[in-house]
């Protein structure tokens, strides 16, 4: 088996997103291998929605996703942590002011 394994092409990896019901967003459910997007969609139905878990499926080839790197979470997310003025509780208002 392993002799000619090198020149065999592994089916690409697809990430699967499922909308459980209308009104909800598509959520990441997992991934699978398929020869193309068409097949990925069919396989996603069989692998991830055997019990009516979804009304809509997205598949996207994993290599097309650009992800942030957790090692750089500092530079990436810290700028948001010292901006308390983005939250309503930052502003001092007298108790008499209602509906705000």
């Amino acid at each position: 088996m392993s002799d000619n394994k090198k020149n065999k092409k592994e089916w690409p990896l697809f990430e699967v997103f499922v909308r459980s019901k209308n009104g909800l967003e598509h959520r990441h459910f997992g991934s699978l291998h398929a020869a193309d997007a068409e097949m990925a969609l069919e396989n996603a139905r069989d692998v991830y929605t055997r019990r009516n878990e979804g009304v809509s499926i997205w598949v996207v080839e994993a290599k097309n996703i650009k992800a942030s790197n957790p090692d750089e979470n500092g530079e990436m997310f810290e700028p948001a942590s010292d901006k308390v003025y983005r939250h309503p509780t930052f502003y001092d208002l007298p108790d008499e002011v209602k509906h705000m």
């Binding site: 088996m1 392993s2 394994k5 065999k8 592994e10 990896l13 699978l32 291998h33 692998v47 055997r50």
Partner: peptide, 26 residues
């Protein structure tokens, strides 16, 4: 069929650690 599905969930979860499906089969 569920068992095939369970195998597939688990294989793809394992792949996130940097091993390929073919390597696991091998």
């Amino acid at each position: 069929q569920d068992e095939a599905g369970h195998g597939l969930y688990l294989y793809s979860a394992t792949e996130t650690l940097g091993i390929s499906r073919d390597e696991m089969f091998e």
